[in-house]
Design a protein around this nucleic acid. Structure first.
Lengths: 191, 191
DNA sequence: GACCATAACGGACCACGGTCCGTTTCTCAA
DNA sequence: TTGAGAAACGGACCGTGGTCCGTTATGGTC
């Protein structure tokens, strides 16, 4: 890990152009109907630039989600309870699941794209790691007899974007899923 | 639903050739290092034939998994307890999860491929449907106060192949995951 | 056996994600 | 200001999944 050199001016310029172009095209045509070529074109940038910057298509989606996720992360780490510290574990988990599903529901397509990293990149990126650690700590608090690390993955699994999307299409609405999830996880964490 | 016309002789011949070729190549080079072109070539068949028959890459994986899954399905529906009918719901769910994770662990790559149907095809195919219905019935039996339909999806979510794969790579072994899953689901289904 | 409707075949073709590498732009220090 | 080294650019290029449609095999009928 060397020092992270400041971002070069042209790099920053292009990064913003790409993000902006992607947001525009995604909003207009739907995430999955927009190719990376199209984004590069709209941004007035070479395709190689997009990949250099974001790694792959999923990375671009991650970048677009980032600011919304960061907001939630901030609330978890230092916001008011029950999302932030200071409430019982079950309440905090419930608050997290509710907030996350809200976010997920509003940006399913983007999440779906961001989770599609053929290899398991999804489980290695920062935000998943953070959600996982957060939940694991709360599991440990509520049910020290369980395998907190693994159980946290179990709790996060139903938040997969493709499942959410499929269930929406099957007629489930958000409140029903939130209620179901909270009920399940509450049962799980109540000794 | 019209009558399903018997399979034509050449079609059957080619179907078997493709399945056989795929199995061979997958075993030798790893599922994700084998292209559909390569399979068609090895099978001595046009690429179009493969797609006509199996729809897409995921469909081919599904076909390869089919016989193993059918075996488990049979045991669920009419085998001896606790997998089959006649045991308490929790025991049946436990037995199912144990058996399924066994299967999943043995064929992760294939499962991963089969679940990669960019759109949510995964949740629409027969086997998922069947697992879901099975679990939903047992949830209903054990915890009639829960939303059985949705809860069944929650219980199946941790069985996603990409998660399983990622956790294996992170050092979790099968018994640990089985134990964790059974513990979680037991807690969930115990009122 | 000849004929026909129909289903299956197969490979050229396309779009897309991702890589590569010669060219351009930036930064910073002298 | 300039020059050198590093970093970023960008578009030609590649492999892959998936489609299309003219050609060929199949199996029933007379």
């Amino acid at each position: 890990m060397g020092e992270p050199r400041p971002e070069r001016a042209d790099a920053r310029r292009n990064r913003l152009k790409v993000l902006e172009a992607a947001e525009r095209l995604f909003a207009e045509h739907g995430v999955k109907n927009v190719s990376v070529d199209a984004i590069a074109l709209e941004a007035g940038v070479g395709k190689g630039t997009v990949f250099r910057r974001f790694g792959d298509r999923a990375g671009l989606a991650v970048a677009l989600l980032d600011e919304r996720e960061v907001e939630l992360q901030g609330k978890l780490l230092s916001g008011p309870p029950p999302l932030g510290p200071g409430a019982p574990a079950i309440d905090r988990v419930t608050a997290f699941l509710t907030a996350y599903t809200e976010l997920l529901d509003r940006h399913v397509e983007l999440f779906a794209d961001s989770e599609n990293a053929s290899d398991g990149a999804r489980y290695r990126i920062g935000s998943y790691r953070l959600w996982h650690r957060h939940i694991a700590i709360l599991v440990e608090e509520a049910r020290p007899d369980l395998d907190a690390d693994y159980t946290a993955h179990v709790i996060l699994a139903p938040l997969a974007a493709d499942l959410h999307q499929a269930l929406r299409e099957e007629g489930f609405d958000l409140p029903r899923m939130q209620a179901g999830l909270v009920a399940a996880v509450t049962a799980l964490l109540t000794a």
